[in-house]
Write a protein that binds this DNA or RNA. Structure first.
Lengths: 193, 193, 193, 193
DNA sequence: CATGAATGAGCTTTCATTCAT
DNA sequence: AATGAATGAAAGCTCATTCAT
C-alpha cells in the first residue's frame, strides 16, 4: 500500500530533521516508520532517492500553512505582515529539512527537480503581489515573480539568522526581527497602503 | 610547520567544494595536500575539527575581496552596486563551502563559533551603511547592523537562486538579477543619492 | 499446471547460463518465466532445489542431440567423429550450466543425484563401444563403460579448452581440435576400422 | 608487509576449498589470516580480485609437486605413470579450488589471465613428451603441446570422476582408475617403451 | 494454485582514526 | 613532527523466503 511509502516519507522527515543527513541511518527511518529495512528499498532505490519525495511533502505543507495564514481579503500591508510571520514560523520548523533536502538532491541527480518542487510557493507569493499591483498598492513597475523570489529569500535568511544560535529566542526579539523584515520589504515594494 | 596545516586547510576547501561533505575523505584531503594520512590528526583532532579553520579562511578571503572591490570613496549608490556584484561573485565561488562548513559546524559542537567568524563581514557592510547615514544618503532611522544582515542574506539568496540550476548563466541574466537586487535594496534603504 | 514448473526450469537454465550461479536471482527467473515470485516456491522448496531438475533437463537435451547426430549404422570410426563433434557442440552450449548445476548440487545435499542424472549419457557411449567390441572394431579387452567415461571426460575438457578464451573460434580451429581429439581416442581404443 | 598479503591468499585458499565461493565470507578469510577486515581491501580491491593470486599460488604448488614426483630420468612409460598418479593426487587436493578460482575469474574481468597462469603446467608436460619424441619413444608425428593439453584434461576429468561421490575411494579403486587412464594415454601416444 | 508485498538476516565495502616506526 | 599500514565498527543494500489475500 501507499500507506508504507507515506509512513517512510514522514519518518524520514522526522529523522532527517533530528539527526541530519549523514547521521540518519536507514535503520532509524524504517524503525520510526514501523516497517522492515528492505521495505525502504521497495519504494526508494537508494537513501538519497527519498529526497524529492520529502521536498514535495515539505513544500505541500508549507503551501498549506501559508494559504491558511495569509488572509486573502486583508489589506496588502497586513498580508505582508502575515506572510513574514508565517515564513518565520515555517523556516523555524522546516529550514533544516529544506537545507538537508537540498543537499541531498545536490549529491544526487535529482537537483533539477528542486525548481519544480519549490515553484508553487513562489507562485503563491507572486499572486499576492500581482493583486497588489492591480490595486496599485505597490510600485506597479516591479516584476511580481522576481520580487516574490527576493522576498522569500530575504525572509528565509532573516528567519534563519534569528533562530541560528538561539533555539528559543524571546517573543520580543522575534517580533522585532519580523517587523524589521516586513518594513524592509514594504519600502522595497514602495507599498502605498 | 604551519605550512602543512595551511596546505591541509586549502586542500580541504578544494575537495569539500568539489565533492561535498559526505563524499570527501580524509585520504582525498591529505593526498591533495601532499602529506601523510596521520599528519591530518596532528593538526585537527577529527574530520569536523577542520571546519572552523575553513570558515575562517573563507571569510578572510571574502572580506579581502569585498574590501578590494567596494570603493570606499565612491557614491553610496555605486557602493551598493559594487557590494551586490561582489557578493554574487563570492556566493558563486564560496556558497557551497559555506553551506558545508555551516553543516559541518552544526553536526559538531563548534556551531557557536560561526557567529564570531561571520561577524567581520556584517561589520564591513554595516560600516558602509553607517557612513551613508551620517551623510544622510539613506533613511537615517534604520539600524545599520540589522540592515547589513538583511542585505547580506538577501544578496546571497538572490545569487544562489541565480546559480542554482544554471552553472553558467549568461552575463545579461547575471546583470539583470544583480540590478534587481540592488534596486530592491536601495528602495528598502530609501537611498537618496 | 506442469506448465509453470517447466517454464521455471527453462527460465532458470537461460538465466543461469547467462549470469552464473551467484548473479542469478529468483526474481530474474520468475520474471523470465512470467510467473509470480511466490510461485517458484510452490514447485521448488529453495533456490538450490531446482538444480536436479535443471540437470535432468540438460542431460535429456544432450542425449536427444547425441542420439540424433550419431548415426547408429555408420562405421565405428565415423561414429567416433560424430560423437566428438556433437560433444563439442553440446559442451559449448551447456558446459556452463553443467558446471553451475554441479556446483549447485555440491553446495546442497543433492549431489548424490548427479551420478544418476548423468548416467544415461555414459550408457549411450558405452553402448556404441560395446557394439564396436562385438564387431571387433576396437581393442576387445577394454572395458566399455570405463572407456566411455574417459572419452566423455576427454572430449568435454578438449572442448572447454577450445571455447575458453575464444567465444567464437574459427571453423578451422574447431575442426583441428576435434580431429586431434578423435584421433587421440581412436589410437587409445586401438580402433581397427 | 607482503606477509599479510600472503597470509590472506593462503587463508582464502583454505576457506574457499572448505566452503565454496558463495559461502565464503571475507570475515572468514581475515579471521583465518589473523588480520583485520579492512586489511583485505588494502591488498585486493574486491572479493573476486584475490582469485588471480589464488590461481597463481595453486599452479605454483601444482608445478612444484609435479616436478618433484615425476622422475626426469625414469623411462617414459614410468614417467607417464608418475604423471597420472601425481595428477590424481593434485586433482583430489586442488580440483575444488581450481573450479572455484576459474568460476571466480569467470565472474570478473580476470578470466583472460587464466591461460597465462595455467600455461607453465602445460609446458611441463609438453617438455616430457618432447623428450620422448626425440628419443622416439612415442609417435613422433604428434604435437607435444596439443597432446599435453589433452592428457592433462583427460587425467583431471578421470580423477574428478573418481573422487566425485566417494570422498575416500579404496586404494585398489584408485590404482585401477589410474592404470586405466595411464594405459589409455599410452595407447593414444603409441608409446614404444 | 497463484500472487507479490513484505520481511530481516547478513553481506561487502568504506573510511575515520590509531600507533609503531 | 611525520609517516602510512593497519584497524574494526558501522552502514547501505540485497535477495531468498514467507504469507495474507
Amino acid at each position: 500500500m501507499k500507506d508504507k511509502k507515506q509512513k517512510l516519507i514522514e519518518a524520514a522527515i522526522a529523522i532527517f530533521t533530528e539527526k541530519g543527513l549523514e547521521q540518519t541511518k536507514i535503520s532509524d527511518i524504517v524503525k520510526h516508520a514501523g516497517v522492515a529495512q528492505g521495505t525502504f528499498y521497495l519504494y526508494f532505490p537508494s537513501k538519497l532517492a527519498i529526497m524529492p519525495a520529502i521536498a514535495e511533502e515539505v513544500v505541500k505543507e508549507i503551501l498549506a500553512v501559508a494559504k491558511k495564514e495569509v488572509n486573502s481579503r486583508a489589506a496588502f500591508t497586513e498580508q505582508l505582515n502575515q506572510l513574514v510571520e508565517v515564513s518565520f514560523t515555517l523556516t523555524n520548523r522546516y529550514s533544516e529539512v529544506i537545507a538537508l533536502t537540498y543537499a541531498g538532491l545536490a549529491s544526487s541527480d535529482y537537483l533539477t527537480e528542486w525548481e519544480t518542487i519549490y515553484e508553487p510557493y513562489y507562485e503563491f507569493v507572486a499572486a499576492i503581489l500581482e493583486e497588489a499591483i492591480q490595486k496599485k498598492e505597490m510600485d506597479v513597475t516591479l516584476n511580481p515573480k522576481q520580487m516574490a523570489r527576493l522576498i522569500i529569500g530575504l525572509t528565509e535568511s532573516a528567519a534563519e539568522q534569528l533562530y541560528l544560535y538561539d533555539t528559543k529566542p524571546s517573543q520580543q526579539l522575534i517580533e522585532e526581527q519580523q517587523q524589521a523584515t516586513a518594513e524592509f520589504i514594504k519600502r522595497a515594494l514602495r507599498i502605498t497602503i
